[in-house]
Simulated scan of single mutants.
Amino acid sequence: MGVDALSRTVTSPGLNGLACVLVVGAILTASHAEAQAGANLQDRQSLRDRVFGRNLPPTGRYVSEQGVGFVLDRTAGSRPLLRFDNSAETWALQPSPAPRGDVIYRTDAGDEVLRITPDGGMTLYTTRQPQGTPVSPAGSAEPLRPTPISPVDLARALIRQSGLAGRALGRTVVIDAPDVVPGSEAQVAETAAVAVEAIARVARAENLRGRASRIRRILILIGDRADVSMQGQTLRIVIQPARGPVGRPSSARIVRAVAAA
């Protein structure tokens, strides 16, 4: 039924008919506005991807002058992924403009990781090299995708990470993941590994060890927004498995949450 036919159907004489016409018009206007808003958002995201991805080097493996190797995966649009060699964590980087046309890529905690110049030059920033070090390509690499695991494998992974957390803190730490749904197992396992690494990092800092020692439980939940917080003796982490690393707080963000509690 077309718009004209629908209008004719509801336009009976009197105020009731007029009210129906107004309701139909409002619905059609709202639907059009919603569709237009969605199209505008897609256009902005597409433009953002083109602008920030313009000079970003291709997916591959890279090595700094100090020998720090990592894989850069730019198949996720304007949020490139990065994983250092011998690390279980995949970082989702957020681009922002910098002077001279450079682009800085930061973690969700605001820490600078990469700086890309207009001609494609890359500088890596780490805790050991806070002033930055040049990076060179070192070959091709596959996109950073989690390997699917079974529920049994997830249970084993959580037990293993619980043991690692216990050794880091010197007491039992329980890891709970009550919201696991089929297909989310790999993301939950990586979240547990990232959380335990963050806790161990805090525990190694003499001025922060007391903060980490409060943790008795790591609770991993599935929600509509990535989040992390300390609630009493529980480290509460919310993830969006469908969004991959973008839908999970990084270890840097977890460290800050524990340190601030």
Rank of each mutant, 00 (worst) to 15 (best):
G2S: 14
T9F: 13
T9C: 05
T9Y: 11
S12N: 01
A19S: 11
C20T: 01
A26P: 00
T29I: 11
A30Y: 05
A33S: 09
Q42K: 15
L47G: 01
G53I: 06
R54C: 01
P57K: 05
P57G: 08
P58M: 09
G60I: 02
Y62S: 10
S64H: 01
G69D: 05
G69T: 08
V71Y: 01
D73E: 13
S78R: 14
P80A: 06
R83P: 04
D85V: 00
S87K: 09
A88D: 15
L93P: 09
P97A: 14
D102C: 02
V103W: 12
P118M: 07
P118R: 04
G120R: 14
L124Q: 06
V135D: 05
G139F: 10
P143S: 09
P143C: 07
L144I: 06
P148S: 07
P148D: 11
V152S: 15
V152Q: 15
L158Y: 05
I159L: 09
R160K: 13
L164G: 00
A165R: 07
A165M: 11
G166Y: 06
L169Y: 05
G170E: 07
D179Y: 02
V188Q: 05
V202K: 04
V202S: 04
A203S: 09
R204N: 11
R204K: 14
E206W: 07
N207V: 14
N207R: 15
N207S: 15
R211M: 06
I215N: 06
I215P: 07
L219S: 12
L219R: 14
L221R: 15
G223S: 13
S229V: 12
I239N: 03
A252H: 14
A252V: 00
R253H: 06
V258D: 01
A259V: 09
A259H: 10
A260K: 11
A261I: 02
